[in-house]
Structure formats: C-alpha cells, structure tokens
Design a protein around this nucleic acid. Structure first.
Length: 481
DNA sequence: AACAGGATCAACCGCCTTCTG
DNA sequence: ACAGAAGGCGGTTGATCCTGT
C-alpha cells in the first residue's frame, strides 16, 4: 500500500483518506444447507451495509455473525412468502437498494423517530442548480478544494464558494470527476477481471470494488458493469428504457421480463402473487450457472462425478472481510468460531489449501463445492489479497477460469460450444410466472452435458442435476443480499 | 437526410449509517 | 438515549451520442 495521504493512496481510496483497501476473503462453504420448510417468525434486523471505511477486523466477525443468522432466518421467511403469495414484489422505478432488503424493510415497522420527523432536505431544492456542471463551476470547486480541502462539510461548501449547488452534488462532482488521478476511459482486461470476480462474490458493492481499482470511481464501475460487462458475461441485452418503463405498469410476468429477468425492485404490484428477486442476486446466480456450465463442459463424458452446484455463500457482509491496515485475513480460527456460533449445524470453515486438480481448483475458485470437500464436510476459504489484485502482477489467480471465460478462451479451446458462450438457461418460478434469460441453445447445450435439467417440482422449483438437487430458493437466497 | 432505437455516462434520488450535540 | 445533520452508497434517470435502417 502507498503511504496514507499520498496521491497514489488517495487515488486508490476514493471515499476516505483514512480508508485502507479491504482484504477480501472468499468463503466457499461446501456444507449443505438444509432447506427450510417451515416459516419462522418475522425476523427483524438491520440492513446495515458496512461502509468500506468502517470494516475493521473486529467488526468482520461480528458482521459475519449478524449476517449469517439473518441470512438463514430471512431465507426461511422469504421462501415462505414467495410461494404463499403474501409477498408482493414488483418492479419499482427509482430509488435504490430494493429487492430482498426492501422486502425486509417494508416488513419492519418504521422507527417512531423516523416516522415522526420525516426527511429533512439536505438543501433548498427550489434554489439549487441541477444538471451538468459548467467549466466555471468545476473550476470554482476544484480551486477551493485544492486550497482548503473539503473542510469536512460538503453541505456548507457550495455556499462558501458561491455555487448554487447541493453539497451532495459538489461531493459527487469532486469524487467522480474533479479529484486528482481519476481514470476515465476503457477498462483493461485486468480491471474487468477484478470487477467480475468481486461482483460474483460480493455483489454490487461498487465502492468496495472501486477501492480495488486505482483511479476508478464506483460510479464508473457501476456504469461499466451495467452497460458492458453484464452483457458480455450474461449474454443478454439490457431491456430498453421503453420496455422498462412499460413494465412499471405491466402485470407480471411481463414486468419481470422487462426488468431484464431480474425484477430487482420491489414494491407492491397489483395482485401481489408473484415475486421478483434482486437483479444482483439473479445476475450472480446466472454468472455462477454459466461458469458452472463452462466447467461442466470439461467434465462431459469425462467423469461420473455428480455435478456440483454452487454452494450457498455466506451473506455478503460476511464475505467481504477487511482488515484495518495490513491486509491480513481473519485468522482461520476466527472464521471457524464465527461460523460455528452462527450456524452450529454447519461445518467448520478451514483456511485450507485447495487441492490442485482442475476440477477442484475451479470449483473452489468459482464457489462450487468440490467433491472432496463435500465428502469431508468442510468448507474452503479462498483468499484474495488486495495487494495482489491492485498490483501489477494480477496474481490472485483464484478466478483464472473466469478470465478465460470472459475472453472465451476455454470454450474456444474445448470446442464446447461453437460460436462462443451460449446464452442463459431458463428459470421458471413455480407459478410459471417468471422466466429468466430463456434460451434454448443453452438448455440444449447443457442437456447434452447431462448435468443440468431445470425443471419445476411441486411447490418449489428444483434444479436437478444428475443425482443431486437443491431448491432454487436455497441457492437464490444465498445471493440475494 | 431523417428517424428510431440502443449505448453511454454524469447526475440525481432516496435510503441507510455514522457522527455530533 | 435520542434527534438531527451529514456523509456514503447503490439504483435509476435524462441527455446526448452513436448506429442501423
């Protein structure tokens, strides 16, 4: 790490001069989670997302504890709600962080103090200027901050310098555009690789991902993901704006489809009988599925080993662990202890080396259980140090297959699918309402590998793969953070 | 050339967490 | 312990540019 306070350091830490790049530890649990079949009482919990500036080691364990218990409880509740029709989820426009969190938040009572006070505007909406910044405004802001710093008060800053802008707008302009050492323009393959790896593991925590990419802002990365990487990986077109807007009034499943198959947002829909999951969660599932398909292609006819489904990962908060300063991971014992506290029925987590064969390496790297690991009832912890990621060596190497996947090297080499990565399989909810990324070619391709047979079964959608099966809900909920 | 639709990205919105008094 | 302010974050939108017909 560069010295705190240096331009290089600041360029790596977009949000806070005191911020230390997180050390990401991927926990790949191969312990099977017993499907929940009975609803539990409504779980009240916070939906806190630790900011990158506030994830010291000591909190990581606590975060793990909080999140995992919440995870299983929430899974329980959500499964029940999803298929009992009690959960009304549809597409909403505007606003952020909907999906599963929103579901919980809506269920939570509004704290009295919040209900009473409402929201005070951060600035006078009537007098504040909106829209693109002029060069003059940029110059004013930059000159002031260069000379005086932000003064620790963005809200007051625009008044000080005579800008008719909201303080938040100033902050955003500075962080995303005016700040020194900002990189604009095309992303490198290495950067793409890092973004994809992290997205699969921790979801849309753009600020955390941005912290791993010197000079890139979370907004840039978010835009890049939404406009390019997502399409590249998922092989589908983003829904047109028109379609998105139309979807807001449309009944499911149309709105679900229009939302890109992900149906991310949540607000009550007309009949309240269908549900959508967070787009982030679904995208990550789809990525995993694609990667597994890729992985399976190599196993076609080569092994009788049962297919390995991606394992439930701990909730995102538990996945992104940070250390305060030196990039140490949590001690393995800490992880074990935390996991055992949360989920005594689950196996311990060991910081163990991953066996070297391709299958097991790939499975662990990408979050799929390895046969060996499964048999032993253990989990693997795969680490990715920020240093190796940010440095020039790109040496973290746990997702080499992802890299190949991104650039179609494996498929080309294996001749597994002529014409590139096949599109996505079809997922259908039990009521037949929601179809995700339907594509015959992929299904055919997967069927030919005898590893993947999406189907519906009874009240709960089951994904059957050879002799193994798991409930989609189990799988989904592990991602739906 | 005109138009429609898609792609891109800066900026906004609203929520949540943390800080402060 | 509480309320309010401020900062931070992620999702969404609107303006603009690009591309195909």
């Amino acid at each position: 790490m560069p010295e705190p306070g240096t331009p290089e350091f600041l360029s790596r830490c977009p949000r806070d001069p005191g911020y230390k790049a997180p050390h990401i530890t991927f926990l790949v649990s191969s312990q099977t989670h017993t499907p929940v079949t009975t609803p539990s009482p409504v779980v009240q919990h916070t939906s806190s997302r630790p900011s990158p500036t506030q994830l010291p080691t000591s909190i990581a364990a606590a975060s793990t504890a909080r999140s995992s218990s919440v995870f299983f409880d929430r899974a329980d509740q959500l499964i029940s709600d999803l298929f009992s029709g009690r959960l009304a989820v549809a597409v909403a426009s505007g606003g952020g962080r909907r999906g599963g969190e929103e579901v919980d938040r809506l269920r939570r009572p509004i704290p009295p103090h919040r209900a009473a006070m409402g929201r005070a505007p951060c600035c006078d909406k009537a007098t504040v200027k909106k829209g693109p910044w002029s060069p003059e405004e940029d110059a004013k802001l930059k000159a002031y901050i260069d000379e005086n710093g932000t003064g620790g008060n963005w809200i007051a800053l625009p008044q000080k310098i005579g800008l008719k802008r909201c303080g938040k707008s100033c902050r955003l302009r500075w962080l995303n555009y005016l700040r020194p050492n900002i990189k604009h323009g095309d992303f490198t393959e290495e950067e793409e690789h890092i973004i994809c790896s992290l997205y699969i593991s921790i979801g849309s925590r753009w600020s955390i991902i941005a912290a791993q990419l010197p000079g890139r802002t979370d907004n840039d990365i978010k835009n890049y993901w939404n406009t390019k990487l997502k399409k590249k990986l998922l092989g589908k077109r983003a829904p047109s704006r028109r379609l998105q807007r139309a979807s807001q009034d449309a009944p499911m499943p149309y709105s679900y489809l229009a939302a890109g198959g992900g149906g991310a947002s949540s607000s009550g829909n007309a009949n309240g009988t269908t549900a959508a999951l967070s787009s982030s969660a679904l995208e990550r599932i789809q990525l995993h599925m694609r990667l597994q398909g890729l992985y399976s292609a190599f196993g076609c006819g080569a092994s009788n080993a049962p297919p390995q489904w991606p394992k439930l990962e701990p909730p995102t908060d538990a996945v992104a662990m940070t250390t305060v300063s030196h990039g140490h991971s949590l001690a393995a014992a800490d992880v074990v202890e935390a996991e055992q506290q949360l989920n005594p029925s689950a196996g311990a987590s060991y910081d163990m080396p991953v066996p070297g064969g391709f299958e097991e390496r790939s499975a662990s790297k990408l979050g799929f259980g390895s046969a060996a690991g499964e048999a032993a009832g253990v989990a693997s912890t795969v680490e990715m140090s920020s240093g190796s990621m940010v440095g020039g060596g790109f040496g973290y190497g746990h997702v080499d297959e992802l890299y190949d996947f991104l650039y179609s090297k494996q498929l080309a080499a294996a001749g597994a699918f002529q014409g590139g990565v096949p599109p996505l399989p079809e997922l259908q909810c039990p009521d037949g309402g929601a179809v995700v990324g339907a594509d015959e070619k992929f299904s055919t391709w997967m069927a030919s590998c005898d590893h993947y047979v999406p189907t519906t079964g009874g009240q709960q959608l089951q994904l059957q793969a050879g002799g193994n099966s798991m409930n989609l809900q189990d799988f989904v909920l592990g991602y739906d953070q």
